[in-house]
């Protein structure tokens, strides 16, 4: 199978994730979209590793997974706290730092 297909799939997934981050207000959804973008990146790394016959892409994919896991822990905790204090999970409501 042509590895180029995986690259195209990764681009499509990344675009979906990016659009999701931009258009959705719910913090959980935004969060999931970020995960989608990270995984699209992982797919691209693995596909590139396959195309170039190297191992570095795969290694980096593991690193991204670790970072993503850590991010999920911190991010979900923040969302929980915001939801508790403001009774809302909308990212637009959390705009205290404006101007």
């Amino acid at each position: 199978m042509d590895p180029m297909n995986y690259i195209v799939l990764a681009a499509v997934l990344f675009t979906i994730g990016a659009v999701g981050v931009l258009v959705r207000r719910n913090a959980i959804i935004v969060f999931m979209c970020v995960e989608l973008m990270l995984n699209a990146c992982n797919l691209a790394f693995v596909a590139f590793a396959r195309m170039h016959g190297g191992i570095e892409g795969q290694v980096i994919a593991f690193f991204v997974m670790v970072v993503a896991a850590a991010e999920v822990v911190v991010g979900l905790a923040i969302i929980m706290q915001i939801f508790r204090t403001r009774r809302s999970a909308s990212v637009d409501d959390a705009s205290l730092l404006k101007n």
């Binding site: 981050v21 931009l22 207000r25 935004v30 990212v91 637009d92 959390a94 705009s95 404006k98 101007n99």
Partner: peptide
């Protein structure tokens, strides 16, 4: 200063 809207999505 006006650029800092506070909306996470516009930053994104």
């Amino acid at each position: 200063r006006l650029v800092q809207t506070g909306f996470a999505r516009s930053y994104a």
